[in-house]
Amino acid sequence: MDIIYTLLPVFVFGGLISFIAQLFIDLTAVTPARILVFTVCLGVLLYAIGVYEPLYNMFGAGISVPLTGFGAAIGKGVRSAVDEKGAIGILTGGLSASSSGITAALLLGFIFAILFKTRSKRM
């Protein structure tokens, strides 16, 4: 039973973010590309105003899966880099914190592009 109590909040949080994004896509002229950008920036903002960390501790690691988590990681990286190195941290923190995700995506994207061919769309 315990596992359900751990997983349910994560499910609801992830679902809710997707739900809100879908609402924007369906009801406004906002394109998916803008939604992604907005989600990342929202993550940075949530971290900056100190909301993200408590949410993370409350709900669990699963809530970092949406791109808000990517944004929060950038925010966290910048903050700890500034704490450590001062002003130069403003420039180094963001990319170092998000490096694993970006590198993994680029690497895998490249490898799969070499290995696989696109297939025409089906209805």
Binding site: T6, L7, V10, G14, G15, L16, S18, Q22, V65
Partner: peptide, 19 residues
């Protein structure tokens, strides 16, 4: 329909992340 599906899929992927 769209939002329900988005909720279920988004929730499921985050749950997978947690697992």
């Amino acid at each position: 329909r769209d939002c329900t599906l988005a909720f279920l899929f988004g929730g499921a992927i985050c749950t997978l992340g947690e697992l």
